[in-house]
Write a protein that binds this DNA or RNA. Structure first.
Lengths: 227, 227
DNA sequence: CCATATTAGTGTCTCTGTGACACTATGTCA
DNA sequence: TGACATAGTGTCACAGAGACACTAATATGG
């Protein structure tokens, strides 16, 4: 084997989800550069070796540029590669999947023309760059799976939240109603939540606010919620 | 932003596992080129854009070169990146995790000096190139997790196998005994196995041989085996 | 001030699948 | 033929999800 090799074009793209009004939203940006100028695409770009210590940092930096802050949750999804997915040549995209609370980033998003929350059900109407539609679908499936066996969806909520809010977010993600009781059992069993001092009005009895325990890691439950 | 960007060194490496004599083994190769000449490392290398249609093909090609065949199971594990992991500069490695039956590849391995099966418990004694030890550990954890909720370990067995063999492989991977009964229930429920014509002697009653149904996909169970 | 509606939270039964383990079945070997 | 070994089954206990009725607390309207 020779020392020569072809190094593919390498980019990092993120699928940033949030939930708002029982709708799963994804952050898209209007592309200002070729290829696919004018189309919607995932926020992302090239590694900046001077700034980024690794690809996670690249994903965070690119998301921060669009939303004003680092996402509450970020994990690697998948690398997608091929000779034809980018007209400039063989390319590899490392896709990330991330979550934020809508409230945390909405002002920044609203102030920027180039970025926008799009409901997942409206994606079909848009022209998406590259295979980004496919990547979003893969991210959504991963999010759904994780929701069945973990509390990942809390990262779509502000630091203080009620059980009803969490239930609603979960139901939006898996597109199925769940039992309030099952959720409470899991909250209890996971031991990663704290009962806040406050309660907030809800139309009926006051709702207890919860927060994530500082430094607590997500737990995986041994059983899935049923789909 | 300028059109300039730094494109990192990009490689594909695979963690190929098998199980033999109640031991989890990983395929390592002795590095013939810099960096880390003479150390053990994961089989892998650069994409060949003329041959490889994507990174999966790169992983398969590199594994075939060492084992003589494409692995029975292959999935993306994780990309690892950083400025210091490769002395040549900022690099990204896309790690794959793969499984084969020991019998299927052992003749080829035995005939090659540069590749060898190493028991996981013996890894600490070796000098491993790059952060390959860390990657192997991540792959092992993924394999363990998957074993708790799927039949992934069948890919460490030849096409025909007994329940006792599958049980042994699973126990080796998760390092805990499981109930024969639980395994049989899962085999039944998954509906991806076929009862073969044959039985083989086992020291006692003859053991039924099973095969994977052709074209059957792995199923994920809703509950984990308990660790 | 009380009745009613509304949402929060609990009690408890059913259901399903794992863990445990004894029991039956069928092979080998002395 | 009987002891032993491994294959495979029957069945009970246990844990956690689903279902759903019940209690608790707050708002609103007469």
């Amino acid at each position: 084997m020779s020392a020569e090799y072809t190094n593919p074009l390498f980019t990092v793209d993120s699928v940033l989800f949030t939930v708002k009004n029982e709708q799963l939203l994804v952050l898209l940006v209007k592309r200002a550069q070729a290829p696919f100028i004018g189309d919607w695409g995932l926020p992302g770009g090239f590694i900046d070796e001077k700034i980024d210590n690794n690809t996670d940092a690249t994903a965070r930096r690119k998301l921060q540029a669009k939303t004003g802050l680092s996402p509450a949750y970020l994990e690697q999804l998948q690398a997608i590669s091929g000779p034809d997915r980018d007209p400039r040549g063989f390319s590899v995209t490392l896709a990330y999947f991330a979550l934020v609370a809508y409230q945390d980033v909405s002002p920044q998003i609203a102030s920027v023309e180039s970025a926008s929350w799009i409901a997942l059900k409206d994606l079909a109407k848009l022209n998406l760059a590259f295979d980004h539609l496919h990547i979003i679908e893969a991210a959504r499936q991963r999010l759904q799976q994780k929701t069945l066996y973990s509390m990942t969806p809390v990262f779509c909520l502000p630091t203080q939240f009620t059980i009803a809010q969490l239930k609603s977010v979960i139901e939006t993600i898996i597109e199925k109603p769940i039992q309030r009781k099952s959720l409470m059992r899991r909250i209890e069993a996971s031991d990663i939540f704290e009962i806040s001092e406050e309660k907030i009005p809800s139309g009926g009895r006051m709702a207890q606010l919860y927060t994530l325990k500082p430094g607590a890691d997500l737990v995986n439950f041994e059983r899935n919620l049923s789909l």
